[in-house]
Design a protein around this nucleic acid. Sequence first.
DNA 1: CACGATACGGAGGGTGTCTCCGTTTAGCAA
DNA 2: TTGCTAAACGGAGACACCCTCCGTATCGTG
Lengths: 187, 187
Amino acid sequence: MTRLRADAVRNRERIADIARQLFREKGYDAVSMDEVAKTAGVGVGTLYRHFPTKEALYDAAIQAWVETVNAAADKALAGEGAPRERLLAWFEAYVEFLTRHKGAAWRITSAMGDDDSPFAAKCRTYLNANQRVVDTLAGEGALRGDVDAMQLCRLVGGVAAVVDNSELSADAARSMLAVVADGVLAA
Amino acid sequence: MTRLRADAVRNRERIADIARQLFREKGYDAVSMDEVAKTAGVGVGTLYRHFPTKEALYDAAIQAWVETVNAAADKALAGEGAPRERLLAWFEAYVEFLTRHKGAAWRITSAMGDDDSPFAAKCRTYLNANQRVVDTLAGEGALRGDVDAMQLCRLVGGVAAVVDNSELSADAARSMLAVVADGVLAA
DNA sequence: CACGATACGGAGGGTGTCTCCGTTTAGCAA
DNA sequence: TTGCTAAACGGAGACACCCTCCGTATCGTG
């Protein structure tokens, strides 16, 4: 295992930073690899040396915020409110995560259950967080028997994708999430 | 208003037929306009004379089945069962419609509320059908007060998109739809 | 049958992802 | 410091996609 050259490390980080900004402002489709390269002041060859595909670059660009998802789940669950409030708090946090980068919600939710996707690692993290939520609330007897974490990922991810795509208001998102919450909570 | 030439009509129909088959088998992205043209035995210019964009061709290709959606809504509502059964029957029919062509569910659900989309007409039809379902069940006092048809289109469309994309089983679809149904039915 | 309006075909323009390879440079060793 | 080699760089260009343009062929009417 040979060390990475210093200039390579610098470039990799600058590229990921630039890409993060661009993707965040414009969304996945509206940013071309040429644009990322030009903005970062490197050739496209350099881009592809560091990130084998555009999706891999995207994955790296949106990496940082994924790592706080578990903390967010804990925070939502730790509240004192009724199960419904805590579940909704988690749902809203989850949607907020997924919609932080335009186009990410659908891409990630699409990749759920696909081990070959560049987003597979992120999906596992999300699935895990949802699993903890399910376990906690089920332990309190607050959920219907047949709720599982993957299903929740898909339901809430689907809502997030629609909210992101149609640029719906937070209120509209909340009322859709309330439907899902009421559907999984014990009657 | 001059008449259409006979060969033009023939070509238009053959193109739409071929496109329907191809899109249905492979999904929107995996079919190129060149492929449609070659398979139909025409030049791409002819394609674009009849359909101004790929999305317009897609819209035409999936047209036929849309026209039966109102009948499907009536049929689902006409049943004798409890509101929950009838609502679920409608949801399943709706998802079955949207997933009949790979990739259509997300495209159409994305276009909800966008009057400029090539799918705007389809969206209105779908919205209408959902509105009738909402009106009927609300008339029976079976729904929560704040349910509206657009929200339902988005929720069920989101589920359809995920089901289509991840090629989920009918059972998996049903259990997700049950969550949505329980979330909108009066407690 | 002749002729004008209509339709056809496919080369090619513009843009996107990704590859290939000649050139440059970092970093170590003498 | 200097020389050398493996690593990294840059950007031309291959390939695929959607779509346009215009010269050619065809329909259908007078």
